[in-house]
């Protein structure tokens, strides 16, 4: 206030210097603002790098001691100091694949229904329900998984799968073994429910950004709803959809408590998806508190580092896919 009042009372001769002072102030303020935002942005980079480096330093003794064997061996024996990550990596990847196979189509289906087909009366309740699903803490999914979903799997789903798919030569090995309820499949299905709201909420939001003029034009030339969704809505919003799917995959890969409750925590690889397994985060959650310093702790940190790398690769792949889609769309 005073700064703008002063030049008016003073002689015109001193104006240029005043103006430059004001400009200097503004410039200084701008530089300060830029510096602060830049600092905030680089803080993220520094944190990321710091986490990666400290994990790697912690993991190094295990990598050095076991070498490539750490990634191939599925033996995890603390008393014998023999550690291999294969079982945990396998469980992490397979549960995530199962979750994505079920969660993504269903999630996209819900989003399409909500934006294109749903009667307005239902839109809000279903939308709110999806958002509530996203807000449930993962430990609640774990408890639900143990007390309600696992007995259901044990009593109905698994005996059915063993009886039908398990009898088919070839894919039968995927559905072998006694129906104990706990296992890779149960964990994958719980994860599917957990990632559903991510896929749905993000896809719905981006679907709503499609200009109605595009959709109406397509309907106008006689396209069916299916064709509109497939040819207009999804191509228009693919960046957002892929982003949502990747966020969901990120959650599926790193989810800890809910998986620990239902996966059965067996550190070995079996061909059957009904058998018990483990994931990287479940192993760390179970064993870190009691791990002896030395190779045991280092191996757990190595597991953490591997999960970090897997997540990184997934994100990089997503970026790469997106950039390819952009190029294609540009042509």
């Amino acid at each position: 206030m005073t700064a703008s009042a002063i030049p008016a009372t003073e002689t015109s001769g001193s104006l240029p210097s005043d103006r430059s002072a004001a400009l200097g102030r503004l410039k200084f303020r701008d530089a300060g603002f830029r510096f602060m935002t830049f600092g905030a942005a680089s803080l993220v980079l520094i944190l990321l790098l710091g986490v990666a480096i400290s994990l790697f330093i912690g993991a190094w003794p295990a990598f050095r001691h076991f070498g490539l064997d750490f990634f191939i061996s599925d033996s995890w024996s603390p008393p014998k100091e023999r550690f291999g990550a294969a079982a945990a990596i396998y469980g992490t990847v397979v549960t995530s694949i199962i979750a994505m196979l079920i969660g993504v189509p269903v999630g996209l289906g819900i989003a399409v229904f909500l934006t294109e087909l749903c009667p307005p009366v239902l839109r809000r309740p279903i939308g709110v329900a999806i958002e509530l699903l996203a807000g449930i803490p993962s430990i609640i999914y774990g408890i639900w998984g143990v007390y309600y979903f696992k007995p259901f799997m044990q009593a109905y789903v698994q005996p059915f799968l063993i009886g039908t798919l398990g009898a088919i030569p070839g894919i039968g090995v995927l559905f072998a073994g006694p129906p104990l309820g706990y296992g890779i499949l149960t964990a994958g299905l719980v994860l599917a429910v957990m990632i559903l709201p991510f896929v749905t909420a993000i896809s719905r939001d981006v679907f709503e950004t499609v200009p109605s003029v595009l959709k109406e034009a397509a309907y106008g030339v006689g396209a069916t709803t299916f064709e509109v969704v497939g040819n207009i809505v999804i191509p228009y919003t693919r960046v957002g959809v892929v982003g949502g799917v990747m966020l969901a995959l990120g959650r599926a890969l790193g989810e800890t408590m809910a998986v620990t409750f239902v996966i059965g925590n067996a550190t070995k690889i079996s061909t059957s998806i009904l058998s018990q397994g483990t994931t990287i985060s479940a192993m760390i959650a179970n064993q870190f508190a009691d791990a002896d310093p030395g190779l045991f702790t280092s191996s757990l940190l190595a597991l953490g580092f591997i999960l970090f790398i897997i997540t990184f690769i997934v994100l990089a792949l997503a970026r790469w896919m997106l950039s390819r889609l952009e190029v294609k769309a540009g042509r």
Partner: peptide, 24 residues
């Protein structure tokens, strides 16, 4: 297999805590 606070179990379901085993 040997002796430790956690070992490489050849078979079975792993549960968390005494109550987890009891519940299982």
């Amino acid at each position: 297999i040997g002796v430790a606070t956690s070992v490489e179990w050849p078979v079975g379901i792993g549960a968390k805590g005494n109550d987890g085993v009891a519940n299982n």
